[in-house]
């Protein structure tokens, strides 16, 4: 596999705030990567840095083996779909699709037309008269039909309804299967995209807290549910990711189990319940935040 994005010790400060704080990671060619995290975690800043729209405070970025900053040979291979894309005054949707081929060498006009029909996008209406969802669908269509070797979708579907989002996922997957390329998808709707992702990067407070394949991540936790005593006996001194309890009942999220361990748990009358990617990310994010608080408390003491 070829590495298409390679970032090392990257930092971006805005005044005193470290929006991206000394991160290192890489993304392989022709994978779908989820870039997840809370609001203000640093996702958009990171994508702006990767596409040469922000200058790094320090650290190295290599995209297609080169720095993306002011580098036409890198940038012409990138399609970056932003949450808040602005268009010229008086632009109509059709103007976007007419001008897109000027920027994207792989633009597929037929595919764009099929997507326009799928999303029922009115081409002749002025863009400022479009609804929020329709505006988002323009971005989604450009991102898909541009077929750029590296495509970033930054929260592409603000205002898109459930039907339109499903169309987006289905078309993305079909077209990716036919025309493999590297896709970085930033979203809050983790459950919806969980199965599409091959690689998951979670950023929190400017730092990367998870950088794993989706399969590893999925197998990395299980919730054990049962009488507190039995649960505690079973978990022993394993690391606890999360703990809930009601009355004498406990539900404890721990690292993934082997099939023998699962059978043991079942034999001791414990129930094992799945932890979705979304729950897992929430728990791991909370864990680092708690850890951070403890450090702060220690620093104050």
């Amino acid at each position: 596999m070829t590495t298409i994005i390679e970032v090392s010790n990257l930092t971006k400060n805005f005044g005193k705030l470290a929006a991206v704080d000394n991160v290192s990671f890489s993304i392989e060619e022709n994978t779908i990567c989820g870039l997840l995290g809370r609001n203000g975690a640093g996702k958009t800043t990171l994508m702006q840095l990767l596409t040469g729209q922000q200058f790094a405070t320090s650290g190295d970025i290599n995209v297609f083996g080169q720095s993306p900053v002011e580098n036409a040979s890198v940038l012409q291979n990138i399609s970056f779909i932003k949450e808040s894309q602005r268009y010229p005054e008086d632009f109509r949707a059709k103007h976007v699709f007419k001008s897109a081929p000027w920027f994207f060498a792989n633009w597929d006009a037929d595919f764009a037309e099929r997507l326009i029909a799928d999303f029922r996008l009115p081409l002749d209406r002025k863009i400022k008269k479009l609804s929020r969802g329709q505006l988002s669908s323009i971005g989604v269509i450009v991102g898909l039909a541009s077929r750029a070797p590296l495509t970033f979708f930054d929260e592409p579907y603000l205002g898109l309804d459930a039907v339109a989002r499903q169309i987006f996922y289905d078309r993305l997957l079909e077209d990716y299967a036919e025309h493999p390329r590297t896709i970085v998808l930033s979203t809050h709707l983790i459950d919806e995209v969980a199965n599409l992702l091959e690689h998951v990067i979670v950023i929190d407070d400017g730092q990367i807290i998870i950088d794993e394949t989706a399969d590893e991540l999925r197998g990395s936790a299980t919730a054990v549910v049962g009488p507190s005593g039995a649960v505690d006996a079973f978990i022993g001194n394993r690391e606890v990711l999360h703990r809930d309890g009601i009355g004498g009942l406990a539900s404890v999220t721990i690292a993934g189990l082997t099939s023998t361990e699962r059978a043991d748990a079942a034999a001791s009358g414990l129930e094992l319940s799945p932890v979705s990617l979304q729950q897992l990310i929430i728990r791991r994010t909370n864990l680092t935040e708690l850890g951070g608080n403890e450090k702060e408390i220690e620093a104050r003491a």
């Binding site: 289905d170 997957l173 299967a177 493999p180 199965n195 599409l196 091959e198 989706a214």
Partner: peptide
């Protein structure tokens, strides 16, 4: 095919 399976189950083709 791998692609047919991926699209049918709505999962990543690598999976």
């Amino acid at each position: 095919s791998i692609n047919e399976i991926a699209v049918f189950y709505r999962i990543n083709p690598a999976t």
